[in-house]
Design a protein around this nucleic acid. Structure first.
Length: 400
RNA sequence: GGGCGUGUGGCUGAGCAGCAAAGGCAACAGACUGUAAAUCUGUCGGGUUCUACCCUUCGUAGGUGCAAGUCCUACCGCGCCCA
């Protein structure tokens, strides 16, 4: 029997993470209220070894359904990862080797541990791999599955249309992606699929398929991709806006502080457990403090209170109070006198001499708290000397 | 198989025979601040005897020019159309 507390259910449905429920939100709500135990799933393609806050948000949502008493499956797309979903990309993703994918999945399992209670023996979250069934399909079965779709239907997808317009390639295997994702639903016999709004097409393909093959319906819950409300951009590595779950506490705290201010509320809603009213209040205050609160709150989820506090202290110390970090890389040398450019390169504070030169000219290099603006000189090395480049890079010299 | 296009720095995307190669993104630094936000400014292939000089880069290999991403040839990859 599942939890049918109306208030709890509505809190999950209305918090803001869920953007759309198909076929309708009302029907889904009714289903939850009925007390029937539903089988949920969310799929992740292990295309990269790391996860970021957007993935975390999805896991958090799944955990909420699990806590209501439903069966929850995290599906690692170890098979689909090797094909690559065309969504969002305007060219085909490179296909990954079996080995890469297995390595990624292993890391992921560790990363999501803080977000789900795997020790709940009564109703533990389940982990499945779609390689288990997709790799076993015969050509005959694949063709049979394909006969459920039309090329026109597949071509409707925005991104395919875009590629046609731009005369970019569409590979045949990319067409098979919705088919495979759809088959996942059939193989697991799920009642509900949770996916990002960019995946609705694939999820609906699964809905059609499960209807045709098993005569049962499936709900599709589309969740926010956490776009920046100002620019519409997603969190991404290439935009430098990613917050990675495998980061060290101090780095994760820093990555959150580096988020644009307008992301604070969105991240609060999706990546913390704080009640909405409390979030409203925090966000209405000083933006800097609100974000700091957010960073602490999220770091707490992954590393615990103690580590999170430590990360915060360190951040304030180095960036707010401009003090030295508590530990920094040490560079061992026995050279007494060093050309400043060589010193910067050897300590790996600069990747090349030209770059080192530029840094010195820009006034970015401090040696023992004194800004060094002259690059054509050598410095006398002292034990314990501290070289600082920009506000984030420090090296302590140890004279042998 | 035939025709037409296309291949540029981390990404994107300009490029006339005389550019280390416009613009945008990302990155880095400086100023400012409320933070590693925002904004503004500068930098953004490597090296040196450093406001100058040298070397290496524009799919690959050759060729024509004093000079070639920029023209020619072949090859490779990709796209479109025809078959």
């Amino acid at each position: 029997m599942t939890d049918t507390n109306e208030q709890k259910i509505d809190e999950v449905l209305n918090r803001g993470t869920i953007v759309e429920i198909l076929p309708t939100k009302d029907e889904f709500r009714k289903e939850l209220l009925s007390g029937k135990k539903l089988r949920f799933y969310i799929g992740f393609d292990a295309t990269s070894p790391t996860l970021h806050l957007s993935h975390a948000k999805n896991i958090i949502l799944m955990e909420k359904f699990r806590k209501l008493g439903h069966e929850v499956i995290i599906l690692f797309g170890d098979f689909t990862a090797r094909i690559g979903d065309p969504s969002g990309e305007n060219s085909a993703r490179k296909q990954l080797s079996r080995k890469e994918v297995v390595g990624n999945v292993k890391k992921w399992k560790q990363l999501i541990k803080p977000l789900m209670n795997f020790n709940d023996l009564k109703n533990p979250p389940k982990i499945k791999y779609n390689n288990d069934w997709l790799s076993k399909l015969t050509m005959e079965e694949v063709i049979d599955l394909a006969s459920n779709f039309t090329v026109q239907r597949l071509l409707e997808r925005d991104m395919f249309q875009k590629r046609i317009r731009e005369e970019k390639p569409i590979h045949l295997h990319e067409f098979l992606y919705p088919l495979m994702q759809g088959y996942d639903s059939v193989a697991m016999g799920v009642d509900v699929e949770v996916c990002g709004t960019d995946q609705i097409f694939n999820a609906l393909a699964g809905r059609d398929l499960i209807k045709k093959l098993k005569g049962k319906d499936k709900f599709v819950i589309a969740v926010t991709l956490m776009e920046n409300p100002k620019t519409g951009e997603l969190m991404s590595k290439s935009k430098g806006t990613g917050v990675f779950l495998d980061a060290k506490p101090a780095d994760m705290y820093g990555q959150i502080m580096a988020q644009p201010d307008e992301m604070t509320e969105i991240l609060f809603v999706n990546n913390t457990y704080l009640p909405l009213e409390e979030i409203k209040e925090i966000v209405s205050g000083n933006p800097r403090d609100a974000k700091a609160h957010l960073a602490l709150e999220i770091a707490k989820i992954f590393f615990g209170e103690k580590e999170a506090k430590k990360a915060e202290e360190e951040f304030n110390k180095v960036y707010r109070d401009k003090e030295l970090p508590s530990d920094m890389p040490v560079f061992n040398t026995n050279t007494r006198e060093y050309f400043i450019l060589d010193l910067l390169c050897d300590t790996r504070l600069a990747p090349s001499k030209n770059e080192a030169k530029r840094l010195v000219e820009a006034g970015a290099v401090d040696i023992d708290d004194k800004t060094e603006k002259e690059w054509k000189k050598s410095v006398e090395i002292k034990d314990g000397m501290i070289i600082k480049v920009g506000s984030r890079k420090f090296v302590k010299i140890k004279l042998k």
